[in-house]
């Protein structure tokens, strides 16, 4: 039986942008309010899963041509790199620092190196979750 998923696909096309924006909000708000890399990565994967539900595996791998195993590896590289980078300044492993910078649009902003570590967590969570879901979805019945 051939079905037409017009309503689901139209709702998905609008909702996915809201979900991605919300995940970015959670990711960047993690320093001062609930949120952070883990839940931000989970919500990003939830948005991709919604795309997978509304469309099919082939379309999504075409529009998001990432190898999610490499995304997880890149995240681990980020997290380890921020740890090793602290050796450059002669301080113990994983020592984080922050500073105040004058950015063009945002004005004076506090930038912390913990965000880079959080980026690593985010990428690992997205990579691992999407690898699990795509591997299960590719399975023949």
């Amino acid at each position: 039986m051939k079905t037409n998923d017009l309503i689901l696909q139209t709702v998905t096309k609008i909702t996915v942008f809201i979900i991605f924006a919300y995940s970015l909000t959670l990711f960047f708000a993690g320093h001062n309010s609930p949120g952070g890399g883990f839940v931000g990565g989970l919500i990003t994967s939830a948005g991709i899963v919604l795309l997978l539900l509304a469309f099919d595996l082939k379309t999504i791998t075409t529009i998001l041509p990432f190898d999610f195993k490499k995304v997880a590896a890149l995240g681990l590289l980020f997290a380890a790199g921020t740890g090793i980078g602290s050796f450059l300044f002669g301080v113990p492993f994983l020592t984080h620092s922050f500073g105040h910078f004058d950015l063009p649009i945002f004005g004076e902003t506090e930038l912390a190196t913990a965000v880079l570590f959080d980026t690593g967590v985010y990428l690992v969570v997205v990579g691992v979750t999407m690898t699990i879901i795509q591997t299960i979805g590719e399975d023949d019945d």
Binding site: T3, A46, V49, L53, A54, I136
Partner: peptide, 28 residues
């Protein structure tokens, strides 16, 4: 907001499983 998103995605996944027998299709 998190519960809203998760409830929506869960219900969509359940109803797609009930309708088509698969949750994620390989190719339409």
């Amino acid at each position: 907001l998190l519960l809203g998103i998760l409830a929506f995605i869960g219900t969509v996944a359940f109803s797609k499983f009930l309708e088509k027998g698969v949750v994620i299709e390989r190719e339409r």
